[in-house]
Simulated assay, not measured.
Amino acid sequence: MARSVEEILRQSEVIARQRHLPEGESDSPLERLRQAVVGRGEAERRLLEAVRAAREAGCSWATVGAILGTSGEAARQRYGPLQDA
């Protein structure tokens, strides 16, 4: 099941606060996975900022959705509630 942007951001913040693996394990599969999750959170944050900027510039949800590869309604449902967050 797809998670909301808010859930992804919340999870990435939790993981980012967790301690790194012991020295010598920085290239372990778990550390690479942790880094990927943090990176996904950062990418989602940049995407949300870009959606906010587009909406503030007057772009419609249909246009935003088209760029995201979805419908305007799906984009509004996913990012609309986060506009004021």
Rank of each mutant, 00 (worst) to 15 (best):
G72I: 04
T70G: 09
T70S: 11
C59F: 07
S71P: 05
A53S: 14
A53Y: 08
E49G: 09
R76D: 00
L48Y: 14
I67T: 15
C59A: 12
A62N: 13
R78M: 09
Q77N: 05
E49N: 11
A62F: 08
E49T: 01
R52H: 05
Y79M: 01
A54V: 06
G69F: 06
A54R: 08
R78E: 15
A54D: 13
S60M: 04
A50R: 06
G72L: 07
V51A: 02
E56L: 02
V51Q: 11
A74W: 04
A74V: 07
R78W: 03
G58W: 02
A75H: 07
C59H: 12
R76C: 08
Y79Q: 00
A57G: 14
E49F: 04
Q77R: 14
R52M: 09
C59K: 03
S71N: 08
E49Y: 03
W61F: 07
R78A: 15
T70E: 09
V64T: 07
R55Y: 10
L68Y: 08
A75P: 13
T63C: 03
A54T: 05
W61C: 02
L48F: 08
G58P: 02
A75K: 04
L68P: 07
Y79D: 10
R52K: 11
I67H: 15
S60Y: 13
G72Y: 10
R55K: 14
L68I: 01
S71W: 02
E49D: 14
A53T: 13
E73P: 00
E49V: 03
A54G: 14
I67L: 13
A53G: 06
A75M: 06
A53W: 08
R55V: 13
R52D: 12
E73R: 00
C59I: 01
C59S: 13
L68W: 02
G58M: 00
W61D: 04
L48M: 11
V51D: 02
S71H: 01
G72N: 11
L68G: 03
A62L: 01
R52G: 05
I67V: 15
A66C: 04
A57P: 12
S71C: 00
C59Y: 06
W61I: 01
C59D: 05
A75R: 00
A50F: 02
A62V: 07
L48P: 12
C59Q: 11
T70A: 05
E49R: 10
T70K: 05
S60H: 11
A53P: 10
T63A: 15
T70L: 01
Y79W: 14
G58Y: 00
A53E: 15
G72Q: 11
V51K: 02
A57E: 15
G58A: 04
R76M: 03
A53V: 01
A66Q: 14
A54I: 03
A50K: 01
I67W: 12
R78D: 04
T70Y: 05
V51I: 13
E73A: 07
G69E: 10
C59R: 00
T63V: 06
L68V: 02
A62R: 11
A50Q: 13
A75C: 12
A57S: 15
E49W: 07
Y79H: 04
A57Y: 12
G65E: 06
